[in-house]
Computed example of a mutant assay.
Amino acid sequence: MPLTEKELMERDAKRNIGEELLASILEVKAGLHGDVHKVEVTEAAEARSKTGLSQPKFAELLGVSVRTLQEWEQGRRSPSGAARSLLHIAAIRPDVFREVLAN
């Protein structure tokens, strides 16, 4: 059963919010609370990020649909053949992609 307004006020009057916040911060810093989730960045997402291009522009340069690029970036599908080679080039030489787009 939820607390009444009066019960809430009585409870909160006894609390030191600043102290509670400080204690919580110290617990988090000590690693006592919270989970760490690591998201692996796909080669496609990393390559596009290095070029600084939008998904539509990058997909156009690769000759694929934006949806296909999104699938690669989210790890639901993997590129194969020439697309994988182009992604590798984009990752190590993003300037080449920007230059191709400029011309």
Rank of each mutant, 00 (worst) to 15 (best):
I17V: 15
I17F: 15
G18V: 13
G18P: 03
G18M: 15
G18L: 15
E20W: 02
E20K: 10
I25H: 08
I25A: 12
I25L: 14
E27Q: 14
V28C: 10
K29T: 05
K29N: 09
A30P: 03
A30V: 03
A30S: 13
A30K: 14
G31D: 08
G31T: 14
G31L: 09
L32N: 11
L32G: 11
L32K: 14
L32P: 01
H33S: 13
G34K: 11
G34Q: 09
D35E: 12
D35K: 13
V36N: 04
V36A: 07
K38M: 08
K38L: 11
K38S: 05
V39A: 13
E40P: 14
E40K: 15
V41Q: 10
V41S: 08
E43L: 11
A44Y: 02
A45F: 02
A45C: 06
A45Q: 09
E46Y: 10
E46S: 05
A47N: 03
R48V: 01
S49M: 06
S49G: 15
S49A: 11
T51A: 02
T51P: 00
G52K: 10
L53N: 08
Q55P: 03
Q55Y: 05
Q55R: 09
P56L: 04
P56K: 04
K57F: 02
F58D: 02
F58Q: 01
F58P: 00
A59S: 08
E60Q: 12
E60A: 14
L62P: 01
L62N: 04
G63H: 09
V64M: 03
S65Q: 06
V66L: 12
V66I: 13
R67V: 11
R67Y: 02
R67A: 09
T68H: 02
T68Y: 01
T68M: 05
T68P: 00
L69R: 00
Q70M: 04
Q70H: 09
Q70K: 08
E71H: 07
E73I: 00
Q74E: 07
Q74K: 07
G75P: 09
G75Y: 05
G75H: 05
G75T: 04
R77F: 07
S78T: 12
S78D: 07
P79T: 07
S80D: 13
S80G: 15
G81D: 08
G81C: 06
A82V: 14
L87Y: 10
L87H: 11
H88D: 13
H88W: 04
A90T: 01
A90F: 00
A90L: 00
A91Q: 05
R93W: 05
R93G: 03
R93N: 13
P94S: 11
P94N: 12
P94W: 03
P94H: 08
D95Q: 14
D95Y: 02
V96L: 15
V96A: 12
F97H: 00
